[in-house]
Design a protein around this nucleic acid. Sequence first.
DNA 1: CGTTTCGTTGAGCGGGGTCAAACGACGTGG
DNA 2: CCACGTCGTTTGACCCCGCTCAACGAAACG
Lengths: 230, 230
Amino acid sequence: MSRETVLPPASRPFVGSRAPVTTADGPGLFAACPELIGTPAAYDREEEIFGEGEEAESVYRVMQGAVRTHKVLSDGRRQITGFHLPGDLFGFEPGEAHRHSAEALSGTRVLIFKRRQVERIATHRAEVACQLWSLATRSLRQAQDHMLLLGRRSALERVAAFLLDVDLRLGGTGAFDLPMTRRDIADYLGLTIETVSRTITQLEAEGALLRTGGRKVSLRRGRMHRLVED
Amino acid sequence: MSRETVLPPASRPFVGSRAPVTTADGPGLFAACPELIGTPAAYDREEEIFGEGEEAESVYRVMQGAVRTHKVLSDGRRQITGFHLPGDLFGFEPGEAHRHSAEALSGTRVLIFKRRQVERIATHRAEVACQLWSLATRSLRQAQDHMLLLGRRSALERVAAFLLDVDLRLGGTGAFDLPMTRRDIADYLGLTIETVSRTITQLEAEGALLRTGGRKVSLRRGRMHRLVED
DNA sequence: CGTTTCGTTGAGCGGGGTCAAACGACGTGG
DNA sequence: CCACGTCGTTTGACCCCGCTCAACGAAACG
């Protein structure tokens, strides 16, 4: 698998973190930890970053692009457990092996941290360990919110909630370009691609969004929110 | 709300942890931390331990009995995010307020730890912070497994997987007493009580389990496992 | 251009939901 | 001790949301 081919122009083994990382975990994880410098890497669209069962030797921070993590059943049914956008971390595992697979949704740049090194530092620097803790706790909360969605919400609510969430994480302007396919959305929401498609059509018919070509959408966030209605 | 009325005989504000806590997080969380001694408390069946929105000032460890944590939508739809058996911890939150409710399933004893105190200790004792981290990561993994179940498994698979899981957590003998109602099971599995009931009937008809009165069941674990497959 | 992948739409079906009734295990009071 | 009410569970009848199968349109790519 050739890395770094589809990627935009510019330096490939790029250095430092100049990406607009203003999301999630504040001013950057491990900020208070200069000896922890990630190794930059880049992945093509659909390229696997790690697979289920592989040894979990690294953790990752998205700098640019987007990543999905998922689990699969033996018959192919897939559940995407999370999308990771710039600023997000992923790849932490409690044991020695990954219990997920991870792939890049598009040309994606990440910083790689050695798991052993992170753990070693955490064992003698409480503030780093605390960061890891709060990070994991935040992911846990997200996971629990998603359980409510998967267990108890209708297709319409799922798609509406999803679009609002992506909008928020992408800047909250109400207009954005979906970084994932219908299949990815379906496998995240526990639906089929047909249902996702039909539901988006329905949302457009109800005036809750506008399809503005390709994967671009523009949300009427007021109407959208009324559909989710906590 | 009268605490400690339905509970078995014996001392109510009971002291120490004599319960058979051999589960989950090994030889007891905070074991390496003698200054962290939990305050014992007891709750009746169906009694609320904390509610969504309340200030999250404590974390809890189950010593005896069982606890459920859940989220609800405004129209009453409920998703149980976890059952907590002896040895388990619950009540951690990333923010200041609980984003769940928690109730006792039956007469239940817990140890209460002050969140502030735990956090204070974690900030200067890396090993405690690491324990918290690995705890959260383990919960996260469970949550992700449950997402796969909620998003992609059939009713039969859900119920079978659930029964196998409870069996395992209750000792793995194959015969046990379900500590929760059909409603709780349904709200955990994203089903209705009718579907849970019908599915158990079906499992019995297929010879995968035996109903041995009340909530007692006896699993044919071989057949059961073949239904979950993966 | 043809080919492939992705997205949309339609027709029909079925798994699981809804509504309703009856049953069994308890606990309470006559 | 039994009549009665309550609550949890089971079962039946019916229906609908979302899945399946299939065709077609629209980009992306060689």
